[in-house]
């Protein structure tokens, strides 16, 4: 398996999605001087960011071996949809205010794969709208995952404590649940 440079059209879609979710210029900040490359696997493609000077080693075919991962895992493309990887979230978190801070109990339940209820919300950027993806942090400021708002932030004060605020898209418990 040989990594390929990401097609500019595909890259521009990915960039628009990330910037749309987290703010203009965020993708470029995360990318810095790295280069996006793509690895085909089954029906999906995984996108990685690698240093410029690795690009010439892409011509290597890793004969007899299967390339499984390289550099920084940005995310996966499947059926034309791009999903951010858990591994890139704390970098994105540095550059965006689109964040949701959850209580200690909320964080615990979130890292077991559960979604976020009103009772757990400590802080949410008020201008955010339904479907917005947000970086989820605990009260210490650790980035613990990614969620999608199920309500406009402006409306959460009207919700009861058990009402869903954000759906878990991925969380750091994945590392443990997936491979123990």
């Amino acid at each position: 398996m040989i990594p390929e440079l990401v097609d500019p059209v595909v890259w521009s879609d990915i960039k628009n999605q990330i910037d749309g979710d987290f703010g203009q210029g965020v993708t470029q900040k995360v990318l810095a001087d790295l280069v996006p490359v793509m690895l085909e696997r089954n029906e999906n493609q995984s996108i990685y960011l690698i240093p410029n000077d690795w690009v010439r080693s892409l011509n290597m075919d890793f004969e007899g071996f299967t390339l499984s991962s390289l550099g920084t895992w940005l995310g996966d493309l499947s059926d034309g949809r791009f999903r951010l990887s858990i591994a890139i979230l704390d970098q994105i978190a540095r550059y965006t205010d689109r964040q949701l801070v959850v209580s200690r109990r909320g964080a615990e339940s979130f890292t077991y794969g559960r979604s976020i209820l009103r009772a757990s919300v400590v802080k949410l950027t008020p201008t955010l709208k339904r479907r917005q993806r947000v970086i989820v942090k605990d009260t210490r400021g650790d980035c613990i995952g990614l969620a999608a708002l199920s309500v406009d932030a402006s409306r959460i004060d009207r919700l009861g404590p058990e009402k869903l605020v954000a759906k878990n898209l991925v969380d750091i418990g994945w590392y443990i649940r997936r491979f123990g």
Binding site: L49, P51, W54, M60, F62, E63, G64, F65, T66, L67, S68, S69, L70, G71, T72, W73, S85, I86, A87, D90, I172, Y175, R178, F179
Partner: peptide, 24 residues
């Protein structure tokens, strides 16, 4: 999983028999 969890960004991960490492 461990490479990602630990924030390693300089790894190239290959699956295969390391006895064939000369081929690389």
């Amino acid at each position: 999983s461990n490479v990602y969890r630990c924030g390693v960004t300089n790894a190239i991960i290959l699956r295969g028999d390391a006895r064939k490492v000369r081929q690389l």
